[in-house]
Amino acid sequence: MLDFFRWQDAIDIIVISIIVHRLLLLIVGTRAMQLVKGLLIMGALAAAARIFDLRTLSWFLGKVLGVLVIAIPIVFQPELRKMLEELGRGGSLWQRKKTGKKAELLSHEVARAISYLKGQKIGALIVLERNTGLKDFWRTAIKLNADITQELLISIFWEGNPLHDGAVIIDRDNIVAASCYLPLTENSDLSRWIGTRHRAALGVTEVSDAIALVVSEERGEVSLAINGHLSKNLKEAQVQKLLLHYFGGEDEENKSLLDRLQEDIRTLWS
Rank of each mutant, 00 (worst) to 15 (best):
H164P: 00
K102Q: 11
S223Q: 05
W158T: 15
D165W: 03
K97F: 11
G160L: 08
D173V: 00
F137V: 04
V127C: 01
A177R: 11
A201M: 05
S179F: 08
D171M: 05
I226V: 07
H229P: 00
S179P: 00
I175A: 07
A141P: 05
T205H: 00
L117M: 15
H229G: 00
R172T: 13
R192T: 15
A111W: 06
V110D: 13
E186Y: 04
F157A: 13
D171P: 07
T140H: 09
L163M: 11
I156G: 06
H164I: 00
D209M: 03
L128C: 07
A212Y: 02
R199T: 02
D171N: 15
I156D: 06
A124S: 14
N187T: 02
I226M: 09
T205C: 03
I154D: 03
G195M: 07
D189H: 04
S115Q: 15
A111F: 04
A210I: 01
K98L: 05
F157M: 07
A212F: 03
A225P: 01
N187S: 09
K101H: 11
L134Y: 09
V215W: 13
S92N: 15
W138T: 06
T205G: 00
A103Y: 08
A103D: 09
S115G: 11
K118W: 05
A178C: 07
A210M: 02
E218L: 05
A167F: 10
D136I: 09
S92A: 14
D147V: 06
I148G: 11
G220I: 06
W193S: 09
G119S: 13
A225T: 02
N174D: 01
D165H: 12
